[in-house]
Simulated assay, not measured.
Amino acid sequence: MSGRAAGTRPTERGSIRGFLKDNGLGLFFTLAFLLTVVGQAFAGQADFNNQMAADQLQSVGFLAYVTSSDFAVDVAENWQSEYLQFFLYIAVTVWLLQRGSPESKEPGKSGTESDKDQMVGEHAVKTSPKWAAASGWRRTVYANSLLLVMGTIFLLSWLVQSITGVAAYNEQRLRQLQAPMSWADYLGAADFWNRTLQNWQSELLAVASMAVLSIYLRQRGSPESKPVGAAHDATGVEG
């Protein structure tokens, strides 16, 4: 045995390598998100300046563009549709089933399930979160916390989209010597609903495709897929 005291060697779990390994999924998508936002900023600035040139107006710098309502509304409309997707997916999968899909609970298990199955109240274990063992409103809030947060982010980002959207829309109207529109009127305008619905339909189609295609198709090793050899009608089974 070396002179180094036992237990002083850093374990992989407590090291940087261990941190990266344990959080690889979240870190990958966070980095990918940041890269796409930067890419969108540069591409959006170029496209915006092309429009300004077509209108024989002065182009804007990068900082001016990323702090503009045009950039903000493009970002917000994507965020609200993504969080709507997850909000609906979390909510409807409590009650609705899709036989054969790993994205669905097994037939006969729709609903919020029993306290025993969910390990809440008297059925909580030592490792359960404190609010899972609590009673009253705390348990109710925690039992629905994921849906509440997703729904809140969706509503806030949709609100931001509407506010930045009317600002961007009015800037365009002023360049065309048209009168600006109020926020209330913008909520019923074609521009607002065109931005909204074109994002909603793509998100809903993606979820429907994933739920149905995963019945028959496989990806070995992915928790979003059934085991390669699982039957097509096997439901709620992850690979």
Rank of each mutant, 00 (worst) to 15 (best):
N78Y: 13
Q118E: 10
P102I: 00
Y83C: 02
G121P: 00
E106G: 06
Y83P: 01
G111M: 07
F86C: 04
E113N: 11
L96Q: 12
E113T: 07
E106D: 11
L84I: 11
W95K: 13
E103R: 14
F87K: 03
R99F: 03
D115S: 11
M119P: 02
E106P: 10
V120E: 00
Q85C: 14
L97A: 11
A91S: 15
D115E: 12
Q118F: 06
P102M: 01
R99L: 05
D115Q: 13
V73L: 03
P107K: 01
G111E: 01
V75M: 06
E77Y: 11
G108K: 09
I90P: 03
K109Q: 11
L97P: 04
P107W: 02
V94Q: 12
G100N: 03
N78F: 09
T112E: 12
K105C: 00
S110N: 12
V94P: 00
V75F: 10
E103T: 08
S110H: 05
Y83D: 03
S101A: 04
V92H: 10
A76P: 08
F87R: 04
F86P: 00
S114T: 05
V120M: 05
E113R: 15
I90Y: 14
W95V: 15
M119W: 09
F86A: 07
Q85I: 12
G108Y: 05
E113G: 06
D74N: 06
S114C: 05
K109C: 03
R99P: 07
T93P: 12
T93E: 10
W79V: 12
E103M: 14
V73Y: 04
Q85M: 15
D117F: 12
G121W: 07
S101V: 03
S101Y: 02
L97Q: 13
V75N: 01
V73Q: 03
